[in-house]
Design a protein around this nucleic acid. Sequence first.
DNA 1: GGCTTGTGTCACTAACCGGTGATAGTTAAC
DNA 2: GTTAACTATCACCGGTTAGTGACACAAGCC
Lengths: 207, 207
Amino acid sequence: MDSEAPAKRPRNAANTRAAILAAAKALLAERGFAGWGVNAIARAAGYDKQLIYRYFGGMDGLAEAIAEDVSAWMQTALVRPDHSAPPASYAEMMARVAVALLDALRSDPLAQKILAWELSAPSKLATAFSEARGKALSGWIARERGTLQRPAGIDAPMLNALLIAAIQQLVLSGAASGRFLGLDLRDDAGWDRVRSGVAGLTRAMYR
Amino acid sequence: MDSEAPAKRPRNAANTRAAILAAAKALLAERGFAGWGVNAIARAAGYDKQLIYRYFGGMDGLAEAIAEDVSAWMQTALVRPDHSAPPASYAEMMARVAVALLDALRSDPLAQKILAWELSAPSKLATAFSEARGKALSGWIARERGTLQRPAGIDAPMLNALLIAAIQQLVLSGAASGRFLGLDLRDDAGWDRVRSGVAGLTRAMYR
DNA sequence: GGCTTGTGTCACTAACCGGTGATAGTTAAC
DNA sequence: GTTAACTATCACCGGTTAGTGACACAAGCC
């Protein structure tokens, strides 16, 4: 019976730091940034909040650590699946990138919460993440583009920004309320419609 | 010298109610929903928070009152300026609607904060406002469309939703951080670029 | 053995939050 | 003038927050 023993954990600063970081990320992904603070995180991690100050220097440092973490993950996540045929045109390439971004965002509640945070309040985590995301995205597009000709006479960066903005907004709205204007974003059928809409829109842009 | 007199205000329930409502809206528009609560609102309005409970039944009622207020305003705000020529094509119509929506949203911090709130947490104010906004928008488009032919073979509601989603996201990002991906949204030059991008995109959609 | 360093917990503060009951002051009806 | 209803304020409650100082314990070093 070890039910009475206070569960002697081995003391290890690295492990503890990682556990706090994981708990902070999980809490942010689950419940968003409302009520995201030292008390809740320490409680969820099972450690005293004092350790958040000791290992991260407070919430700001913790937020930075999360931003680094997520950014690093994103750099590796945004890649074309091996051996898939390279895109035949700029329009085709952007259509693929857009749909891939949509699916990646939709399956990542943590990124959603950070994006929503970005829109609600300027913060260290938000801006750091925003810049990292921008770099990862443009690097991804540049890699995918390869030697493809960018269409002439068109403000392609602007159109791409509009496309990505639309995707972000739809993912955030879908996660928050399950719909956007008339669209039903609660099940895969709705998202299939969005995917084909995004693909069609991209081709129309660069036709 | 009335500097010592406690500024005897005439007692008037209607005035007080309006003052509280105005303070609540102003506070929400300025600082967003973080820290938006009875204490801050009562302090800003210059009345005791008890009156919020008496006149609105609490924060929920106050939020509903704001939603009604903003919805009513929106119904009247989304109209084509008098005597402007009716649009010649569906594409032209949607381009105008999109740019008008962009400008309207951009000049309304309160609507921005409510939209951002919608994305962060489901709430009565958010959902009520969301539905009202949807109705106002579709009504507006229907009115503007008049007898124009909707393009065939195209999922127009989907494309319009993407367009509006992009606009919303850009306005929110611009207000929060002044930029989106590579775009600079801090001054009118950046927004001019967005406007022409939106107009071009709309025409490309419905070409 | 003793001692230092690192790890983790506890207890406490001051400030804020939403919410409520009692009370004072004003107005209006009678 | 008296009384009743309305308007507004105050003082407090329990709970939560961020942040800090003091303490207990473990590991390793000498």
